[in-house]
């Protein structure tokens, strides 16, 4: 499917610039051109498709659905699933949280959504497709959904309502299973198309520089770091590798979309895939800016518990992947 990009990169590097095949420099450049085109292409496609889904199934509808239906345990899974198709900006986490609480949606279910939404977002999926292929992307998405579900169920069990800030407790007391009307239901596809295209542009503008930088760094490493270099330090036998990678990842902001291309090279050079996935999940799912925002609705202890549980689940899945893959 991507042969043509390979050929294009061949032509640019070997015919156009006239480098000879097999040198580190040529390899690195070829890698950069090939990866950039492929990844940006997939990124555009995925972001656009998610935009279309989201236009017809906005967050308001998710909230109404979860508020209306009692699903006897399945609501965690559903909330987590909805998180996949809903784009998430950490600046919306607070209004979203309150809106869910107000609608009588249990705290654990809200958390399930809050975990999966950033974890399986359009940019991460697009990058994953380009870097690791369809099978790995599938595994990432499925495990992301399960991780959100599991975290939500655990958090519900802990009865954390008492750790909300006082005014949110008030909202909780007055909560009811209501339905909120939303505008934009009857737009034509043409109207939506313009808005979606605009969104795609905004999202890409935000991430493309980081992605290109990441691919460039990856390209250099690809050409110069010897095969199997990391196996020595980060082998599957090293039981501290997964937790260390996860904890290292949490403070990084999710806009570090540039990290994914680098991680791909690390995997190429011998870092176990489970350790790598745990690291990426840590980067994408949890970030310090988000924690700061959540302070408006949660006590520091609650944020601690929330991050703790999610980190625990990520570490768990890291180990799992190292065993089964």
């Amino acid at each position: 499917m991507f042969d043509w990009i390979d050929r294009l990169a061949d032509r640019i590097v070997y015919d156009g610039i006239g480098m000879s095949s097999g040198t580190h420099m040529a390899d690195a450049l070829h890698f950069f051109i090939y990866d950039s085109i492929k990844i940006l292409l997939l990124l555009v496609i995925v972001v656009f498709l998610m935009g279309v889904v989201n236009s017809y199934f906005p967050i308001d509808r998710v909230r109404n659905y979860l508020s209306r239906n009692r699903l006897y345990g399945l609501e965690y899974f559903m909330a987590s699933l909805f998180g996949v198709v809903t784009p998430f900006c950490s600046c919306s986490s607070v209004p979203l949280f309150i809106g869910f609480v107000k609608g009588g949606i249990p705290l654990g279910v809200t958390f399930a959504f809050l975990v999966t939404s950033p974890l399986v977002n359009e940019v991460a999926v697009g990058l994953f497709l380009g870097l690791f292929g369809a099978k790995m992307t599938g595994i990432y998405v499925v495990s992301g959904v399960l991780l959100g579900t599991l975290s939500g169920m655990i958090l519900q069990r802990l009865h954390l309502e008492r750790l909300l800030t006082p005014w949110v407790k008030q909202v909780l007391e007055q909560s009811q299973r209501d339905q909120v009307a939303f505008t934009g239901e009857k737009q034509t596809f043409k109207q939506r198309f313009k808005v979606i295209l605009n969104e795609v542009k905004t999202i890409l503008k935000g991430v493309v520089p980081y992605v290109l930088l990441g691919i460039a760094i990856g390209g250099v490493m690809h050409g110069y770091v010897p095969e199997g270099f990391f196996e020595h330090y980060m082998s599957k036998d090293n039981i501290f590798a997964v937790p260390l990678a996860t904890i290292l990842a949490v403070p990084m902001y999710s806009n570090a979309s540039g990290i994914l291309p680098v991680v791909q090279v690390l995997v190429d050079k011998g870092v176990p895939i489970g350790t790598a996935i745990a690291f990426m999940m840590g980067v994408v799912a949890l970030s310090l800016p988000e924690a700061m925002l959540l302070k408006k609705v949660m006590t520091v202890r609650l944020i601690g518990v929330f991050f703790g549980v999610v980190t625990f689940c990520i570490i768990l899945s890291g180990y799992l992947f190292n065993v089964i893959l």
Binding site: C89, S92, P95, I98, V180, E199
Partner: peptide
């Protein structure tokens, strides 16, 4: 945030003209 929630928006930014929500969740 408490004032924002009066408008029942789930995602920001939102643009409200004469108390009617016109745009939400995007620029």
């Amino acid at each position: 945030i408490m004032d924002i929630m009066q408008y029942n928006v789930l995602s920001t930014p939102a643009v409200v003209v004469d108390e009617e929500i016109k745009i939400k969740g995007r620029v």
